[in-house]
Design a protein around this nucleic acid. Structure first.
Length: 572
RNA sequence: UGGGGCGUCGUCAAGUGGUAAGACACAAGGUUUUGGUCCUUGCAUUCGCAGGUUCGAAUCCUGCCGCCCCAGCCA
C-alpha cells in the first residue's frame, strides 16, 4: 500500500535536512555524538538552588538541558545545588519539582542534591591539600577581599598559603566539627593570586556555617562553595554537557581546574548561553522576592509574576511555554525578548484547545420587546470552530439579556459594526436584534436597551440572506452566573523596568483590574479550577485555582484576543 | 581599558568566502455567525564603524567604537 508513490508519504529526496537550524550547543552535542566522545552518550542536568521559585527564564534553561537529552536519546537529571543552607528551604525544593514536572521535563529517577556528595567533596579537598593545591586560610573576610587585589592589580598571597598539609588537614577537620566560629577559617585552593581571572585567585572551597542543612541536618559546620561543588557534581553524575548562563563563563577555567586536579570519574564540559530577559518584567530572584515580601503582589503565585507557579495560575500552558522557548532560540548575545512573543505562544495553543464560551464583563441590559415574556429557549453553540471534535452545547436564551457595554454606542463612529440606535446586529448563535430605544437614568447613563428581534433569524442567519456586520456575545439575565473576573496586564508599565531608577517606580498601576459582577453563561459556574476557556471576543481565561469556589467563581485573564478594532480606534 | 564574552530588520535569530532563512511585531488586502482564527502581500542593496585581502566578504585580516560579565566566606 505505502510504496514509493504513496502520496501520503513525504518524498524521500536528499533535501530533507535542508532547513534544520541547530543552535551552537546542539551543534557541539551533535559533533560529540558523531565523534563518539563520552562513548556517544549525552547526559544533561538542571541545577537549581532551592532558594526561590522558578521563573520563565529558568524554563529556557530547563528546556535546553532536557530538550538536548531528549533529542539525542540521552538522560536528564534534576539536581538541587543546595550548598548554602542559609537561603534554602524545603518549600522551594517541592515547588521547583512541581514546576519542572509541569513543564514536561522528566528526570525519571534521577533526582539528586549537591548535598548527596558532601562526603566526596570533603575527601577531595583533603586530596588537594595533600598535593599542596589547597590550604586552610585564617584571613578574615575583609582581608581576603584586600589580598585578592582588583581587576587591574594582582593580589597577594595569604600568609597561610604554605601552611603544612597536615596542619590544614587537621584544621579542616576541626572546622567541619564545629570547633571554630564562623569566619575564623576558610579552605582555599592554591592557584594563582596574580591570575587575570579573579576567580582563579585562590578561590574558597569551604566556609564555616553553623547552620542546619535541610537534608544533612547539623552534620556539617562547613559548606562547599558553588565553584567547588558544581563541576564535581556534574562529574559524579556523568554529565556530558553542562549548560548554564553566560555569567558563569568566567567560572569555567575554575570548573576545569577542579576537574583536572581531582580524581573525578568523568570529565564534563560547561557551555554557556544568554539567559532570557523579557520586556515588562524582572527576572532576578532578589527583585521577585522583594515584590513578594513588600506586598506589591499577593505572592510568588500572583498571576502577574513571571514565576511558573504564577503563570500556571494565570492560565499559561506548559505547551505554550515550550513553544515560546523553541522560538527564542539559544545564542550568546545578550537579548530581551518582547512580551508579545510569549502572548503569541499562549494564544497559539489556547486558540486550538480552549472552548469558546460567553461571558459579559461589563453588562448592559437588553430587553427584547417582541420576545414572549417568561419564555426561555436553548440555542446550540459551537464549542470550538478550530476543533470539530469539540462539539456543541446548549445555552439558554430569553427576553432579557446582558451584552457588553462596549458593544453599544449611542453615537457611533464610522465603521462601528456593533449595536447603535436603529441598527441590527447578530447575537452569536441566536437571533438578529435591532435597537429601538435607549433608556437612561437621571444622570444620563444608558441603563437599558429596548430591542426587537427577528424570529426568522434563529441560529444567526435569515432566509433572505441579509448581512449584518456585527456579532455580539450575550448572556441570559435569568440564567447568568455572577463571577469575579481578574484582568491582568503587564506587571511593569515600562518595557525595561530596570533601565533607569528604581524598578519599583515602574510598576504598572493598572496591572490588575477586578470585575466583581461579570455575567457568565451557566456552565461557567461549574468548571474545575484551572480550566481554560475563551470568553468569546474578550480573551482567554481560566478558573482561578486559589480563590474560585463553587457558587462564587473567579476567573483570571490569561491573555486578551488580538483586537484590531481597538488598535484602529487608538490610531484615530 | 586586567581578563572573559557579545554586536545581522522594532524584537529574537539563521548564516561558517559565492552574493542576507525563519518567527514575533508592524502595515495593506481577502475570508469569517468571535473586529478572533485562517489566507495573501509587504517589511535589512545590507550585516557596530573604518580600512585591507579576494573575481567575490556578514563571513578572512587590521584598527577603532559600543554593550555585558568578573574584585560575595551568593549561585
Amino acid at each position: 500500500m505505502s510504496g514509493p508513490n504513496d502520496p501520503t508519504k513525504p518524498a524521500e529526496s536528499g533535501a530533507e535536512e535542508a532547513v534544520e537550524n541547530r543552535d551552537f550547543i546542539r551543534e557541539i552535542v551533535a559533533a560529540d555524538v558523531e565523534s563518539g566522545k563520552h562513548g556517544g552518550r549525552v547526559h544533561t542536568r538542571f541545577p537549581p538552588e532551592p532558594n526561590g521559585y522558578l521563573h520563565i527564564g529558568h524554563s529556557k534553561a530547563i528546556l535546553i538541558a532536557w530538550g538536548i537529552a531528549q533529542e539525542f536519546g540521552g538522560k536528564f537529571n534534576l539536581r538541587f545545588d543546595d550548598t548554602n543552607p542559609e537561603k534554602e528551604e524545603t518549600e522551594f525544593v517541592e515547588g521547583i519539582q512541581r514546576d519542572v514536572k509541569w513543564l514536561g521535563a522528566d528526570w525519571d529517577d534521577r533526582l539528586f542534591h549537591a548535598s548527596d556528595y558532601f562526603d566526596t567533596f570533603y575527601e577531595w579537598a583533603q586530596v588537594l591539600i595533600r598535593e599542596g593545591k589547597a590550604y586552610v586560610c585564617s584571613l578574615t573576610e575583609e582581608e581576603v577581599r584586600e589580598y585578592r587585589g582588583t581587576v587591574t592589580e594582582a593580589g597577594r598571597p595569604s600568609p597561610d598559603r604554605d601552611r603544612p598539609a597536615e596542619e590544614s588537614i587537621d584544621l579542616m577537620e576541626r572546622m567541619k566539627n564545629g570547633e571554630f566560629e564562623e569566619g575564623k577559617y576558610t579552605v582555599r585552593a592554591k592557584i594563582d593570586m596574580g591570575h587575570a581571572n579573579m576567580k582563579m585567585r585562590d578561590p574558597l572551597l569551604y566556609r564555616i556555617k553553623h547552620m542546619a542543612h535541610h537534608r544533612t541536618g547539623d552534620t556539617w559546620h562547613i559548606y562547599p562553595m558553588y565553584d567547588y561543588a558544581h563541576g564535581q557534581g556534574d562529574a559524579i553524575e556523568g554529565i556530558t554537557h553542562s549548560t548554564c548562563s553566560l555569567e558563569f563563563q568566567v567560572n569555567r577555567p575554575l570548573y576545569d581546574w577542579f576537574i583536572e586536579n581531582l580524581p573525578v570519574p568523568h570529565v564534563p564540559h560547561q557551555y554557556e548561553f544568554a539567559r532570557l530577559n523579557l520586556t515588562h518584567t524582572v527576572m532576578s530572584k532578589r527583585k521577585l522576592r522583594l515584590l513578594v515580601e513588600d506586598d506589591h503582589v499577593t505572592g510568588w503565585d500572583d498571576p502577574r509574576m513571571p514565576t511558573l507557579v504564577a503563570m500556571r495560575r494565570r492560565g499559561y500552558t506548559a505547551e505554550a511555554i515550550r513553544e515560546f522557548c523553541d522560538r527564542i532560540g539559544v545564542a550568546k548575545a545578550d537579548s530581551t525578548v518582547e512580551f508579545s512573543l510569549l502572548e503569541w505562544a499562549v494564544r497559539e495553543h489556547l486558540n486550538r484547545v480552549a472552548p469558546r464560551v460567553m461571558a459579559v464583563l461589563r453588562p448592559l441590559k437588553v430587553v427584547i420587546t417582541n420576545y414572549p415574556e417568561g419564555q426561555t429557549e436553548m440555542v446550540e453553540c459551537i464549542n470550538n470552530p478550530e476543533d470539530d471534535e469539540a462539539g456543541t452545547r446548549e445555552v439558554p436564551f430569553g427576553r432579557e439579556l446582558w451584552i457588553e457595554r462596549d458593544d453599544f454606542r449611542e453615537e457611533a463612529p464610522r465603521k462601528f459594526f456593533r449595536l447603535k440606535p436603529g441598527s441590527e446586529v447578530r447575537l452569536k448563535h441566536a437571533y438578529y436584534i435591532t435597537c429601538d430605544e435607549v433608556i437612561k437614568n437621571d444622570s444620563g447613563e444608558v441603563v437599558e436597551l429596548r430591542c426587537s428581534y427577528d424570529p426568522e433569524s434563529r441560529g444567526g442567519s435569515t432566509p433572505d440572506g441579509r448581512k449584518v456586520r456585527g456579532t455580539l456575545h450575550w448572556v441570559s439575565c435569568d440564567h447568568a452566573v455572577e463571577a469575579e473576573v481578574r484582568l491582568y496586564d503587564h506587571l511593569f508599565a515600562s518595557p525595561f523596568p530596570e533601565k533607569d531608577g528604581d524598578f519599583l517606580d515602574n510598576l504598572n498601576p493598572t496591572s490588575l483590574e477586578v470585575i466583581t459582577h461579570a455575567k457568565l453563561e451557566p456552565m461557567l459556574g461549574g468548571l474545575e479550577p484551572g480550566t481554560q476557556v475563551q470568553f468569546m471576543r474578550n480573551g482567554y481565561f481560566c478558573v482561578d485555582t486559589v480563590d474560585s469556589k463553587p457558587g462564587t467563581p473567579v476567573y483570571n485573564r490569561t491573555a486578551t484576543l488580538k483586537d484590531s478594532w481597538a488598535k484602529a480606534q487608538k490610531k484615530g
